[in-house]
Nucleic acid binder design. Structure first.
Lengths: 121, 121
DNA sequence: ATTTTATATCACTATATAATAATATATTAA
DNA sequence: TTAATATATTATTATATAGTGATATAAAAT
């Protein structure tokens, strides 16, 4: 009914969706997971993730723009770290949720390029 | 170092990113927010969100495939509801996080079509 | 000053996917 | 059965965006 419409603050939804987009890409999520263990330079992140350097920089900029990570220069190196411990909490909650719904998410190939399943539902 | 690489279970990352993609689209997030108040038929969701019926159905299918929502038929109506209370918990945590980083997320126009900001950083 | 190293930016391409329009399916009512 | 209603599917289009290669900027070392 109309009580629902009141709860649908368009702008709040947009912002919240944007936050989740920070987590919604495998490369960015990889970076965030690594940063859960502490600050890392861009070079280290490149080394650990195996992503290209420009790709890492681009994703870090995206995350930094959204305040999900913060940067700190030390000489030639720039160290990135998570901006808020609640980011880790959200990831933890998500892991708990996934332990139950993982199967469904795994089977969700709706938007997958690797759509090579042979099971028909 | 290498200890990080061990933590980077590729498949786990992919699945987790997929979960967040469920939340990362404004239309889907809207649907989820509405469902936080209880089960709704497709028609009600169309009415409340203002999205087109096929669009709602498509997003619901995506969410259902990923086990984020469950469906239940009653006559001609199909009622959708959140599959797990932890979904709500994740959203709550995210709201708390957003209360602090919202400004940054709001200003994050990196991938925005509505890129009409006049402030230069 | 020049070179080396670390990171960022930019232009471009390819892919993913959100939205739409048209149509199909399923359930109930007449 | 036929009509009406509710939901799902499909094909298509347009847009968003991830990744790459080339280059630029910045700091330190020679």
């Amino acid at each position: 009914m109309d009580t629902d419409k009141l709860l649908l603050d368009e702008q709040a939804i947009q912002i919240k969706a944007k936050l989740f987009r920070g987590f919604a890409d495998p490369s960015r999520l990889m970076l965030i997971e690594v940063l859960r263990n502490g600050k890392r330079s861009v070079g280290e992140l490149v080394e650990i993730t195996g992503l290209s350097q420009p790709n890492v920089s681009n994703h870090l900029r995206c995350l930094a723009d959204c305040n999900l990570v913060k940067k700190e220069r030390d000489g030639r190196y720039i160290y990135y770290s998570l901006s808020d411990p609640r980011i880790t909490m959200i990831l933890q909650k998500s892991e708990q949720l996934l332990s139950e719904v993982a199967k469904g998410v795994y089977n969700c190939t709706r938007y997958d390029s690797t759509n090579d399943l042979e099971n028909n539902e």
